[in-house]
Computed example of a mutant assay.
Amino acid sequence: MTPMPRQIRRVRKPSVWFELAHRAAGSLPGVEERITATGPEFRIGPKLLAWLDEDGVSLLVHIGADERGMLTEAEPRTFSDAVGRRGRTAMRVHLAYVDVGSLKRILEQSWRERAPKRLQRLACAP
């Protein structure tokens, strides 16, 4: 019996717009960018904050359902629902259409939902 060949995953290359996400996420305390076999992702400790989608021009962000619903309804060209890792719902942010301020607010919201309380207190301290 011959062994099955391993499925080769295509590595996602970031688009020029990914630099916006890189700067926005890099300004948040404790966020690390990691390069994985499937592309770049932003983590806060072991928790996944956001990652580059397979299309290379969208960022998938874990964010609360209320915020996600409001944004997808207000700007459907820029924001949409997507199935994230492990079947959880994430929000797709099309990086070519999003403005820098909105992207930063979305990543900050996701950070507040996932960052440990001690890190949040340190970030808020004067």
Rank of each mutant, 00 (worst) to 15 (best):
M1G: 14
T2N: 07
P3K: 09
P3T: 14
M4S: 13
M4W: 03
M4Y: 04
P5F: 02
R6N: 10
R6V: 09
I8D: 15
I8H: 10
R9W: 06
R9E: 14
R12H: 08
P14C: 03
P14M: 02
S15N: 01
V16Q: 12
W17R: 05
W17L: 07
F18I: 02
L20G: 04
H22A: 13
A25K: 00
G26D: 10
G26K: 04
G26A: 11
S27D: 14
S27Q: 13
L28Q: 08
P29S: 12
P29G: 09
P29V: 11
G30H: 02
E33C: 03
R34C: 03
T36C: 08
A37Q: 13
A37Y: 06
G39W: 04
P40V: 05
P40L: 03
E41K: 02
E41C: 12
E41Y: 02
F42N: 04
F42R: 00
R43T: 08
R43L: 07
R43C: 06
G45R: 02
P46M: 11
P46K: 08
W51G: 08
D53R: 07
E54G: 08
E54P: 00
D55V: 05
G56Y: 07
S58I: 00
S58Q: 03
S58G: 01
L59I: 07
L60T: 05
L60Y: 06
L60G: 04
I63C: 12
I63V: 15
D66K: 07
R68I: 08
G69N: 15
M70A: 15
T72F: 05
A74W: 11
E75G: 03
E75F: 06
R77T: 14
F79W: 07
S80M: 09
D81W: 10
D81R: 05
D81A: 15
A82F: 04
V83A: 14
V83R: 10
R85P: 04
R86P: 00
R86I: 06
A90D: 14
M91E: 11
R92D: 10
V93I: 13
V93Y: 07
V93C: 11
H94R: 11
L95R: 01
L95Q: 03
A96N: 01
D99V: 10
D99Y: 10
R105T: 14
I106K: 01
I106W: 00
S110G: 13
S110F: 02
S110K: 01
R112H: 15
E113T: 14
A115F: 01
A115Y: 02
L119F: 06
L119D: 12
C124F: 03
A125C: 09
A125Y: 09
P126R: 14
P126Y: 12
